[in-house]
Amino acid sequence: MSLTRFCPKPGVRRLLAGVLSLAAAGLLAGCGSLFGSSAPKPAPLPTLPAQPVQLQLLWRDDLPSRRSPSQAVLAGDRYVVAGGDGRLAAYALADGRVLWRAHVRQELGASLGSDGLVAAVVTLDNELIVVREDRELWRTRLGSRVVTAPLVAGERVFVLTVDRQVLAFDALNGRALWTQQRAGAGEPLTLLKPGVLRAHRNLLVVGLGPRLVALDSLDGSVRWDLPLAAPRGTNEVERLADLVGPAGREGKVICARAFQSALGCVDADAGRLLWSKSGSGEEGTAVDAEQVYSVDANDRLMAWKRSGGEVRWSSESLLRRQLTAPVVVGRHLLVGDAQGYVHVFDRDSGQPVGRIATDGSAVDSPLSVAPGGTVLLSTRRGGVFALRLPR
């Protein structure tokens, strides 16, 4: 096993849960020289065609926050953003008008989930707080740490903890509805990075370690349980293969990345594994009718054939730029980077065809795509942006 297998991108080593064990910590100790001041520099901005694709800025705002936004979520015709100091705001997609603001007055750890009206956040003190627009509904202390954004759907709030518990609450009054605890919860090493927690029809699809599991949203019972990766190795770090979010979905197909080990797709209706391929990577996936897209550990952007997992193309034009998970917009693929650029690629060839600068700080949230193709994002400085590709 090569050393780079143990040493992920800058900042990701902080995502390995604090242990853990002295042996695991020792394995990571040698990473400093790889990612210190002598770390390889990000690739320069790639050359674009003579007539590049021009992304249009529809609107922007700045969320007043003393700490960078934790994340943002698209909810119907609203884009909801949470600042790290506990401030929340909901924007109208059409014009960026602020629909409501709230402030829970505590620093946030895990990011937010929202259906546009009800929003759920988790604080650094591990409190789950739920608000309805500008009014707090309830709060409760959680027994385990949370780094994955809660999911708000069907008047329920779902929470995934780092020890692989799934909790369901009534969104209006906070009543605990059910808890699902899967095997492997006591493993000494877990990943402090947002995992997979998303809805599919009446199911809750969750990443529990290296497995993608579908739970009945009403009672938490397991509907199917599929392995996307097979952890291997002689130590805890080598065997770490938790699924990382976001998981891409197109129709009944859901595709997800297992940390530094594999990428795979399932038929969520049939509960059947379609394929799984080995490969390093730390970010989530996007999927369309033909291909699956993700970035590897060195920020190589890649596309796989959706039907069988064969590699279709690979682009090294954005190496070491600390990319977000990609999103699909029509015939294009978009990805953000740590310098605040949003890059546009031709999804068939993998060639860079356009880009736009935001505010010079890292794109902090996963890119979101609204119906009609509007792309939304937030940055580390608190910028909130709505972009659109030309029609």
Rank of each mutant, 00 (worst) to 15 (best):
G116E: 10
L57P: 02
T47H: 05
R272S: 09
P227S: 14
A168T: 10
G186A: 12
R211G: 00
L240S: 11
R135Q: 15
I254W: 06
V237R: 08
V19S: 15
A25L: 15
R164G: 00
P371H: 01
Q54A: 13
I129R: 15
F169Y: 15
D269M: 13
E133I: 07
Q322Y: 05
V213S: 10
S365K: 09
A25C: 02
A325K: 02
L318R: 01
A17F: 10
R145V: 13
S70Y: 00
S2M: 04
R211L: 00
V159Y: 02
R66H: 01
P10H: 12
S144M: 02
P194S: 07
S378M: 03
V12P: 05
S317F: 02
A286G: 07
N298E: 13
G354C: 08
Q351D: 12
M302I: 13
L15D: 14
G354I: 08
R355I: 04
S315H: 03
G373Q: 12
L208V: 14
P231G: 12
G340E: 05
E290G: 04
V104N: 09
R239C: 11
T161M: 12
S65N: 03
W224S: 11
G76Y: 10
T140A: 12
V213M: 08
Q51G: 00
A24D: 15
L124I: 08
V146F: 13
G284Y: 07
L218Q: 14
S221N: 13
A23C: 02
S276G: 11
P188W: 02
V98L: 11
K41W: 00
S315C: 09
K9Q: 15
P188E: 03
P390N: 08
V237G: 03
A286F: 04
D62Y: 03
V146H: 14
A357I: 00
E238Y: 10
A230I: 09
L28F: 01
L137E: 12
K193C: 11
L228T: 06
F158W: 09
R156Y: 08
V121C: 10
Q106S: 13
K305A: 14
L204Q: 01
A72W: 01
L228E: 05
P227Q: 05
C31F: 04
T324D: 04
S276Y: 06
V353R: 06
R347T: 03
A214D: 10
R13K: 13
A102P: 06
G18M: 06
R347W: 04
L212W: 04
A183W: 04
G109L: 04
V287S: 08
G340L: 01
G360D: 06
G360H: 05
P40N: 01
Y79S: 08
Q54C: 00
L27Y: 03
R156W: 11
L88K: 12
A230S: 14
L28A: 12
T140I: 13
G220C: 03
G11W: 11
